Simulated assay, not measured.
Amino acid sequence: MHLVYPAVLAVLLFCVGLYGVLARRNSVLVLMSVELMLNAVNLNLVAFDVWLRDTLHAGQALTLFTITIAAAEIGLGLAIVLMVFRTHGTADLDRLRLLAEDTDPGEEPDPDSMAAATANPATTANPATTADLPHGKATVG
């Protein structure tokens, strides 16, 4: 077996995963792209293990370790995405810029500045009805 074929396939998989991480805005698709990149690394590990004819099969053992870490990573990542989706109502990474506010860890955020940062132009025109709240409930005042 030539080493070129799995190496080229691994490079293509890694490039598709890298494109997915850089271009996608949905957090679930970003997690899937990271998994593609990890699978490209696993393919390289197994291909080099076969090519080097290692008696300890260190490449395959490291691949099993990487698969285990990737399974734990995707479980934790999906749990975080679900919690963010429940609290903010979206999994879009551009709309989640609110999480990266510049506040000190010990300082409480100012409610007025948070309300101004989360204000939707459609809801600020008529403050009596705000149907576009993150939790999906409408308030009439």
Rank of each mutant, 00 (worst) to 15 (best):
A58G: 09
L98F: 11
R95K: 12
V41P: 03
S27R: 10
D112Y: 02
L99P: 01
L18M: 14
V30L: 11
N39H: 08
G59Q: 03
S113Y: 05
M32H: 12
P127R: 07
I80L: 15
T66F: 11
Q60T: 09
S27N: 11
L78W: 13
V140S: 10
L64T: 07
L56G: 08
P111R: 02
L29P: 01
F65D: 01
P121V: 06
V30E: 01
T68A: 15
A72E: 07
V4K: 04
R86N: 12
V16R: 11
S27M: 15
M114S: 11
T103S: 06
H88I: 04
T103L: 11
D104G: 11
L82R: 14
A91K: 00
V4Y: 02
Y19T: 13
A40Q: 08
A40E: 06
L98H: 05
R25H: 14
A61E: 10
M32S: 15
W51D: 03
A100R: 11
L76C: 10
F65S: 02
L38A: 15
L133N: 13
H57Q: 14
H2F: 06
S33H: 04
R24N: 15
G106C: 09
A116N: 10
L99S: 00
M83H: 12
L43R: 03
A117V: 02
V21W: 03
A91L: 00
P109S: 06
V41K: 01
G136R: 05
